[in-house]
């Protein structure tokens, strides 16, 4: 009797689970969690930050389940192309070159490229960087910006943290990266605090925004993400999450 009851309960539970799973689509996001405060690994080995929390909220509002897969930046786009995941949430700036290869969601964050230096160095503008070495993460807008600067040697790193370490030890003269990340390293990290500072924000002709890329032509995923993002912004949840994670730059 008891056995029969248990079996019945189990079947009902399974059916309910299946039904739930069917109604709620799961979107797998790839994230290079080395980009504090946007997305990074905390001491409990969990992926946390502005973007993961935003995604969670978007999922709730947009009616989809979120799974985040930690993926190395170098190759993160190739993985999307090969359908290893459905979308990328990794502080990907929307650029023309990238738009050729992938479709982007609505922008979710405005960034600027910041130049981080050792605090005692007299660098105040792009002109001061002439003849200097600027480090940045490979394949990021920070790297592209550094490469475009005249007379500057751009040096690419696998992770932004490694570039910061080389800046700290004096192997390079500056690091170029997104401003929230620059602020996180230069102003928040205990070891670097006081020894590094943001020298200036690189002047840009066009505004730069983060978006969530999906595989070209994946309209279904794109619609869900945009729906969630819109709802989160309208309900004021977005502002709360931003206040929680993003330190003021100046």
């Amino acid at each position: 009797m008891l056995k029969k009851l248990m079996t019945a309960v189990l079947i009902v539970a399974l059916a309910a689970g299946l039904a739930l799973a069917q109604t709620k689509k799961k979107i797998i996001f790839a994230s290079d969690a080395t980009w504090p405060p946007m997305e990074f690994i905390d001491t409990n080995k969990k992926i946390v930050g502005f973007a993961p929390e935003l995604l969670e909220a978007m999922g709730k509002e947009g009616g989809f389940e979120v799974e985040i897969k930690n993926t190395a930046w170098d190759g993160i786009f190739a993985g999307l192309e090969n359908k290893k995941y459905d979308a990328i949430s990794s502080s990907v700036s929307i650029t023309d070159e990238r738009k050729k290869a992938m479709d982007f969601s609505e922008p979710y964050f405005e960034v600027h490229q910041a130049i981080v230096i050792q605090s005692d160095k007299p660098i105040k503008s792009v002109a001061d960087l002439k003849g200097k070495t600027v480090g940045a993460q490979i394949g990021t807008t920070g790297y592209f910006v550094a490469k475009k600067m005249e007379g500057v040697e751009a040096k690419s790193y696998d992770e932004i943290g490694l570039a910061m370490e080389d800046l700290f030890s004096g192997r390079i003269d500056a690091v170029s990266c997104d401003d929230p990340v620059a602020a996180q390293y230069a102003l928040q990290k205990d070891e670097y605090k006081g020894k590094m500072k943001i020298a200036f924000i690189v002047p840009a002709e066009e505004k730069e925004f983060y978006g969530f890329p999906v595989k070209k032509g994946d309209k279904e995923t794109l619609a869900l993400i945009n729906k969630g993002l819109k709802a989160v912004k309208e309900k004021g949840i977005y502002a709360k999450i931003k206040d929680k994670w993003i330190p003021p730059v100046k």
């Binding site: 786009f77 070159e97 490979i138 394949g139 690419s156």
Partner: peptide, 11 residues
């Protein structure tokens, strides 16, 4: 690394 830089920019 040069190759990776090229690939990461051009896909």
């Amino acid at each position: 690394r040069r190759g990776r830089e090229f690939a990461s920019e051009t896909f």
